[in-house]
Computed example of a mutant assay.
Amino acid sequence: MENKKINIIIVDDHPIVIEGLKMMLSSQLGFTVSQSFTSGSEIIDFIKSHQVDIILLDITLPDANGIELCREIKKISPATSVIMFSNRSERSIIMQSIQNGASGYLLKNTSIDELVVCIQGAYSGNIVFCNETGKILSKPSQNDLPVPRLTKREKQILQMLAEGKTSIMIADELFLSPLTVDTHRKNLLQKFQAKNSIELIKLAAQHHMIEGNT
Results as ranks from 00 to 15, higher is better:
130 C>G: 15
195 K>P: 00
164 G>E: 01
133 T>C: 01
188 L>P: 04
154 E>V: 07
193 Q>W: 05
116 V>W: 04
156 Q>V: 10
168 I>A: 11
113 D>Y: 14
123 Y>H: 13
107 L>A: 03
130 C>E: 00
165 K>W: 08
110 T>N: 02
176 L>A: 09
192 F>N: 00
125 G>A: 02
190 Q>L: 11
172 D>K: 13
163 E>I: 08
161 L>E: 01
136 I>T: 10
176 L>G: 03
156 Q>T: 13
141 S>Y: 06
138 S>R: 12
139 K>L: 15
114 E>R: 08
111 S>A: 12
128 V>P: 00
199 E>R: 11
153 R>A: 13
133 T>W: 00
142 Q>R: 15
196 N>R: 11
124 S>K: 14
192 F>Y: 09
126 N>L: 12
176 L>N: 04
171 A>C: 12
108 K>I: 05
138 S>L: 10
138 S>P: 07
196 N>V: 09
116 V>M: 02
200 L>F: 07
191 K>H: 10
115 L>Y: 08
137 L>A: 03
159 Q>G: 10
121 G>V: 00
157 I>W: 00
188 L>K: 06
163 E>R: 14
105 Y>H: 10
193 Q>E: 08
121 G>L: 01
160 M>P: 03
121 G>N: 02
131 N>C: 09
148 P>K: 13
106 L>P: 02
200 L>A: 03
177 S>P: 09
191 K>L: 13
166 T>C: 09
151 T>G: 10
179 L>F: 12
162 A>G: 09
140 P>Y: 06
146 P>K: 13
152 K>H: 13
131 N>R: 14
154 E>F: 06
183 T>A: 11
182 D>W: 03
188 L>D: 00
111 S>N: 05
119 I>T: 11
152 K>N: 14
160 M>W: 06
127 I>M: 03
160 M>S: 09
133 T>P: 03
116 V>Y: 05
154 E>R: 10
114 E>S: 10
197 S>W: 04
190 Q>Y: 09
102 A>G: 06
142 Q>V: 15
168 I>E: 04
103 S>Y: 01
125 G>Q: 05
130 C>I: 08
149 R>A: 14
139 K>S: 10
134 G>K: 14
186 K>N: 09
148 P>Q: 11
